[in-house]
Design a protein around this nucleic acid. Structure first.
Lengths: 217, 217
DNA sequence: GTCCAATTTGTACAACTGTACAAATTGGAG
DNA sequence: CTCCAATTTGTACAGTTGTACAAATTGGAC
């Protein structure tokens, strides 16, 4: 009767983790959502931490592959400004769009990553550290070439803000709707991608003239 | 022997919540950190949710008061660009710097807010919704006046990214250090404030010319 | 000193957690 | 059909959770 329980468990794990975090979701919750028994989870994955590790790698690997692919295309653009824009899209789009076949979209997984990084759970921290994204360094390098004269500090901080913007857009989209009095839809992901790319384009572009001075303190 | 247990419990609650989130921290953890018994928490606060509510309001109220104060000062600047910069600082600085007397700094509380919003805990969600920051609307209004012609969508999304950048800078400062190969210190909060203000200044400033077109998709 | 309300402690409770493992079920190979 | 390994179920376990409440302790008013 059951098609592929293992896959269903993995899918539901992402959904529940992305919604409530790692701590608040019990193995029984995942089992129940999949119409299965608790034991099936220990059978397939051994432990909760190993389940998370599997979920993580399952999505991270193809997403970063897609990022590198798009980065390669972007690097063929000669105009620095257009290249900068393309590089940013190459980083952002795979985080929002599904990178593998049957999963519920990359956005759900990215939201999960956002929640996990905030929770600071030791299991999750270890997994994130192990799967450290070497791709990010490649992006920083590519971005640096678009903005000659930019300081390393400026580049790294702005790419940190890029990721923070990405995460928070997925974590709390309703705030956008609320803050605009309903005029802007925070759950419109295509709009979110465009806005993130636009905003960070401006912030990186601004590094080109590094003469600005802070006001005080 | 005990000076003021109630205050100590509140302080330790912020510290622990900001470090591991709401779910992962037990009342016994908070009691132990304060050298007290579990019962003292139910006595003083009634329940875990009410404890969180008290923590939240304790910090939120003075922080927003300080923001409004600094916003008022900023609005007296006539030059639009300088005013924009001052408004951004008025929003960011109180989130990093202690707003009341004896607590461990506003950064710790802001980090807690970041973690709570990510966790999506129902108790926390309700508290955050109740204490909805009307101040944010005042800031959007002020920002709009600095960037004539900007769309509401652009303003709201960029202020969303501002908050996301703020949160992620506090949640995962080590990523900055790691990504820069140790050359940039992610835990340097003064630098973080300056970078956030600089970056979002550029992103808001960019709204003034709203002629840019997206590349594709 | 006495007294009493405020505070703090200790303990008990039911509910839930991750994990372990024996028993039952399944489904394809021979 | 038989057989057997893979899978799924059911259950038990020790540990932890938030909450409730009686008992002990504190410390200032008189």
């Amino acid at each position: 009767m059951r098609q592929n329980l293992r896959e269903a468990l993995l899918r539901n794990a992402v959904t529940l983790f992305s919604r409530s975090g790692y701590n608040a979701v019990s193995l029984r919750d995942i089992a129940k959502a999949s119409g299965a028994n608790v034991g099936s989870l220990t059978y397939h994955f051994g432990s909760k931490a190993k389940l998370l590790r599997e979920v993580y790698e399952r999505h991270t690997v193809p997403m970063n592959a897609r990022r590198r692919e798009l980065l390669g295309e972007a690097l063929r653009i000669s105009d620095a400004d257009q290249r900068l824009m393309a590089i940013l899209r190459a980083y952002v789009v795979p985080a929002f769009v599904s990178s593998s076949e049957g999963d519920g979209g990359g956005a759900e997984f990215t939201r999960m990553r956002a929640v996990l990084s905030a929770e600071g759970n030791p299991d999750a921290q270890a997994i994130i550290a192990d799967a450290f994204d070497e791709t990010s360094r490649a992006f920083i390098k590519a971005l640096a070439d678009c903005v000659p004269g930019a300081s390393l500090s400026g580049l790294v901080w702005r790419s940190q803000f890029l990721l923070g913007s990405l995460y928070y857009a997925l974590i709390n989209p309703d705030r956008v709707t609320r803050l605009s009095g309903g005029a802007v839809d925070g759950n419109d992901r295509e709009a979110a991608v465009n806005q993130i790319v636009e905003a960070s384009y401006a912030s990186f572009r601004n590094l080109r003239v590094e003469a600005r001075q802070y006001a005080a303190t």
